[in-house]
Amino acid sequence: MFIKYFGKDFMNSVFTIPAPSFTKIEIKKILISEFGISGVIKNLYSDRDQNFLIITKEKKYILKVYNIAEKKETIELQDTATKYIKNRDPQILVPLTVDYQTVEYKGKLFNLRLLDFIEGDFLNKKSMTIYDHKDMGVFVGRLSRALLGFDHQAAHRIFEWDCKQIGIIENNLRFVNTNDKKNIILYFLNEYNKNVIPIKENLRMAVIHNDGNDHNIIINNKHKTFGIIDFGDIVYSFQIIESAVAIAYIYLNNKNPFEKIYAFLQGYQSSFELNKLELKSIIYFMCLRICITVTMSAWRKKLFPKNKYLTISEAPAWSALNKLSKINLSKLSDDIIKNVQ
Rank of each mutant, 00 (worst) to 15 (best):
N221L: 00
H223G: 00
T225F: 06
G227D: 02
G227L: 00
D230W: 00
D230Y: 00
D233A: 07
V235P: 00
V235C: 08
Y236T: 05
Q239W: 02
Q239D: 12
A244L: 04
I247W: 03
A248Y: 08
A248L: 15
Y249C: 10
I250V: 14
L252T: 09
N253T: 13
N253P: 04
N253H: 14
N254L: 12
P257V: 10
K260F: 03
Y262F: 15
Y262Q: 04
A263L: 02
L265T: 08
Q266R: 15
G267L: 07
Y268P: 12
Q269M: 09
Q269W: 08
Q269T: 10
E273H: 13
N275Y: 02
K276F: 07
L277D: 15
L277W: 05
E278D: 08
S281K: 02
I283P: 10
I283E: 12
Y284A: 09
M286D: 00
M286T: 07
C287L: 06
L288S: 10
R289F: 10
R289M: 10
R289N: 15
C291S: 15
T293R: 08
V294H: 02
M296Q: 15
M296V: 09
A298C: 07
W299A: 05
R300I: 05
R300C: 06
K301T: 14
F304S: 03
Y309I: 11
Y309T: 13
L310M: 09
T311L: 15
T311P: 01
T311R: 14
E314D: 15
E314I: 13
A315V: 15
